[in-house]
Structures are given as C-alpha cells and as structure tokens.
Simulated scan of single mutants.
Amino acid sequence: MLTGMQIAVIGGDARQLEIIRKLTELDAKLSLVGFEQLDHAFSGATKEKIDEVDFANLDVIILPVPGTNLEGQIETIFSNEKVFLLEEMLMKTPDHCTVYSGITNSYLTGITKQANRRLVQLFERDDVAIYNSIPTVEGTIMMAIQHTDFTIHGSNVSVLGLGRVGMSVARIFDALGANVKVGARKSEHLARITEMGLEPFHLNDLEDEVNDVDIVINTIPHLIVNASVISRMPPHTLVIDLASKPGGTDFRYAEKRGIKALLAPGLPGIVAPKTAGQILANVLSQLLKDDLQKRKGKET
C-alpha cells in the first residue's frame, strides 16, 4: 500500500486515468492538476490548480509521457488552462521528492538537476518499452491496413532497427505472412535477425534494400530514411515512422516524391490508452512501493 504518500499528478491524457485509479486503490493521497473537465471523481484524489498544490509536502510528482515542452508547459487534455512546471516549484519539495515522466528534454532535465531532485524516465525502462511494444505493433498494423491497397500477407516489409519495438514489429509482420527484412548495425543484432528466421541487412546498405519494398517501418530516432533512400523506393511505398519526434524520415522529400510517410510516435496512447495506462500504472506503483520501503528503512 501507499498509505500516506502525497502525489501530484499533473496533466496528461487518458493513460493518466489508469495511473490515478491504481494509486487511489493503493491509498495514496493525490492532487490532480489539469483535470477540471474530468467528470469522474476518484476517492482520495482532489482536483487543484497548480498554484494550490502544497509542493512542500509532495513525495512524488507524476508528469504525462511527454513530460514538459521546452518552455515548461505540460500537456493537459482535460483542461483548457495552461499548466507549467517551474524550477521554483521543485525547490519547495522535500529532498526525497521524485519526478516521474515518460521521457525528458533539456528543460525538464535542467530544472530537476538544478533543484537536485531525482527524475525517472519510465520509457527508458526495458519492462515499459517491451510491454508498450504490444499496442505499438497493433497500431502499426492498423496504419498499414488503412494506408495501403494491398494485403500485409505477401508484401515486402523492411523494419529498421532491432530494438525492443523493432523486434516485436518484425516478429508480428512475419507472422502475418509478410516478407520481412530487418536492417541493423550491430553484428549481434544481425545474428539475432537470422536466428528469428528473417532476412538481415546492414543499414549501410539501406539504399540498395528498398528498391522493391512495400512498407518501411522505422524505429530509429535519427535521420536514416533520407532523400537518397526515399529516391530508391517504389512510388507506392508506405513509410511508418515509430521513432520519437521528429522521427528518422525526411518527410519533406517524401511528400515531394509522392511517398506516403507517416510519423506515428506514441501509438500505445492512441490505439489502446487503457492498456497503455495500465502498463504505466503497474510499473509506477511498484516503483513507488519500493521507494516507500527504502524511505521507511532509512527512518528506522
């Protein structure tokens, strides 16, 4: 249980509702900021404005998956008011206060460092990324069906990157009957692709590998699907870029060439927000339990 733990949940989308539900079940005391338009009420949770939050008593601050923007503004789907997280707010919190976010940027990293508060990026964790790859794959399949006039079965699919998402995408598209090639750089990844029964290729050879491709699925957050690569693709090729913004595709040249290229980060929160929220809630609640145990151990 998280009895007595003071938590501020600031902003977010439908995924945050699952986090709120889970934490209230564990008896934490929650301040909800940016949820004025939410009709549902949670026992043990109070809707507040950001300037009403008692930061001096907070044990935890939970931000949405994107964290903040570069000006400190936090995404608030359930509110029309602009909400900002400022360094002076963090300075008021107890030393042990921890900030949880999906990802970070220079602003969020900077203010937590200046305030000497711990920042935990949930999407850096293997368990979260692997669980999230499931709704990501389902969303990718949905996009492939919506934006093509041919079946996945029998199509030529190139997956770029064999990380946690790339591996899941390659495996499922193969199971659907596609002819899957996977591009990677590391020798151990090329070996793993072979072991999976798929066709490996080195990313240095990407230009030569796309001349007959129907669907390209990129998971690498660096510009890899560049103009030279796009110029070698057939006109009907669909590019689905799953990398975090701004993606790894030259979208301007793709449009100029007539290649349909879609940037699709955050698919779990779009196609399956309930499941995506439950994934975050389960991992987060365990982390908070562990933190509470450590703190109690130091106090005794």
Rank of each mutant, 00 (worst) to 15 (best):
I7N: 02
G11S: 04
Q16L: 06
Q16M: 14
L17G: 10
L17S: 05
E18A: 10
E18S: 11
E18G: 11
R21F: 06
E25S: 12
S31F: 07
E36T: 02
Q37M: 14
L38H: 13
H40R: 12
H40V: 13
H40N: 05
A41C: 03
I50V: 06
N57P: 07
N57M: 01
N57A: 04
N57T: 06
L58K: 07
L63K: 04
P66D: 11
L70M: 13
T76F: 04
S79G: 08
S79D: 10
S79V: 08
N80T: 14
V83M: 00
L85N: 04
M91I: 01
M91V: 01
T93V: 05
H96K: 08
C97T: 15
I103A: 12
I103W: 11
T104M: 07
N105M: 10
S106R: 11
L108F: 12
K113D: 12
R118S: 15
L119P: 08
F123P: 07
F123D: 02
R125V: 02
A129T: 02
A129M: 07
Y131Q: 09
T140S: 14
I141H: 08
I145E: 01
Q146C: 00
T148D: 07
T148L: 02
T148I: 03
D149I: 01
D149M: 00
S155N: 07
S155A: 13
G161Q: 12
G161R: 09
R164A: 08
R164M: 10
V165F: 03
G166A: 01
S168P: 02
A170C: 02
F173G: 13
D174E: 13
L176E: 05
L176K: 02
G177L: 12
G183C: 10
S187H: 12
E188W: 09
H189G: 01
R192D: 04
T194W: 02
T194P: 05
L203S: 10
V210H: 03
N211I: 14
D212K: 10
V213C: 09
V216S: 01
I217K: 04
T219K: 05
L223A: 15
S228W: 05
I230K: 08
M233I: 00
M233N: 08
P235A: 11
H236V: 05
I240F: 02
D241L: 14
L242Q: 10
A243S: 15
P246V: 15
G248W: 08
T249S: 15
T249A: 08
G269P: 10
A272S: 13
P273T: 04
K274H: 14
K274M: 13
T275E: 03
T275V: 07
I279H: 05
N282L: 06
S285W: 01
S285F: 06
K289N: 00
D291R: 12
Q293P: 03
K298D: 09
K298L: 08
